[in-house]
C-alpha cells in the first residue's frame, strides 16, 4: 500500500470535494465515519469500498479513486443509509452526483450498469416509454452476454408481460424535446 501524503492530496482534491458538495448539496464534512450507512447497506458486500469509505474519499478529495470505484455503481439507491444516518448525510444524493461525474469523466467501473441506464434512457427517448424487448436484446449484445435471461422472454410473453412491439406514446416528440433541452442545459447540477 502506498503512503498518502496528505497535504498534497488535500490540496489537489480541494476543488473536487467542493464541486461534489455543491452539486449534491451534501455536506460531507458532517460525516463522522460511524459506518452506520455501510452496516445497513444491502449491497455493500459486493462493493470494493464500503459506503462510508466512499464518503471518506470525497472528504479527502481522492477524485480518481472514488470516481473509478465499483461501489458508486452498486448503490441501489434504496435510501436505507439516509434513513438512519445520524448526521443527515444524503449518501444516495452523493452517489448520484459521483455516478454522473464518473460518467462524464469516462471512468465508469461498472460498465454494464451504465450501459443498462443508457439503453433504458435511449428507449425512453425514442418511444416515450422503455421497450423491454428491444432494450434487453441490445443490452445482451452490447454487454456480451447473448444468452442472459433469454428463457425469460417467452415466459414473460406467455403471461402477457412483455410485448414484441414497443408501446409508443403519441406525443413522443414532447419527450424527445425534453431530452434535447436537457442536453443543451448541461445537466442542471447547479439547480
Amino acid at each position: 500500500m502506498k503512503t498518502i501524503e496528505l497535504s498534497s492530496v488535500l490540496t489537489a482534491g480541494k476543488a473536487f470535494t467542493a464541486k461534489v458538495e455543491a452539486d449534491s448539496k451534501v455536506n460531507v464534512r458532517s460525516c463522522y465515519q460511524c459506518g452506520k450507512c455501510s452496516a445497513g447497506c444491502p449491497a455493500a458486500y459486493a462493493m470494493d469500498y464500503a459506503p462510508h469509505q466512499v464518503i471518506r474519499m470525497v472528504q479527502l478529495g481522492l477524485e480518481d479513486r472514488v470516481l473509478s470505484s465499483h461501489a458508486i455503481w452498486l448503490c441501489a439507491s434504496c435510501e436505507n443509509c439516509i434513513t438512519r444516518c445520524p448526521r443527515d448525510v444524503d449518501l444516495p444524493a452523493l452517489m448520484d452526483t459521483l455516478r454522473r461525474a464518473a460518467y462524464k469523466k469516462g471512468t465508469v467501473a461498472e460498465k454494464n450498469v451504465a450501459l443498462f441506464n443508457n439503453l433504458f434512457l435511449q428507449s425512453v427517448e425514442t418511444y416515450g416509454r422503455p421497450h423491454e424487448m428491444s432494450m434487453m436484446m441490445r443490452y445482451n449484445m452490447k454487454s456480451g452476454q447473448l444468452m442472459k435471461d433469454v428463457f425469460r422472454g417467452p415466459e414473460l410473453m406467455k403471461r402477457g408481460k412483455m410485448s414484441l412491439r414497443p408501446e409508443k406514446i403519441r406525443d413522443n416528440g414532447a419527450v424527445r424535446r425534453i431530452f434535447g433541452r436537457v442536453r443543451a442545459s448541461s445537466g442542471g447540477e447547479q439547480l
Binding site: G35, S38, A39
Partner: peptide, 27 residues
C-alpha cells in the same frame, strides 16, 4: 468501531448488524 444499523429478532437471538469501520467490513 462502528454504529449498528439494524437489530432484529430471529428465533431466540437478536441479529445485530453493524460495521467494523476499522476493518471496512460489515459484521
Amino acid at each position: 468501531r462502528g454504529r449498528v444499523s439494524k437489530i432484529y429478532q430471529l428465533g431466540d437471538k437478536l441479529i445485530v448488524r453493524g460495521e467494523d469501520t476499522l476493518l471496512g467490513e460489515a459484521v
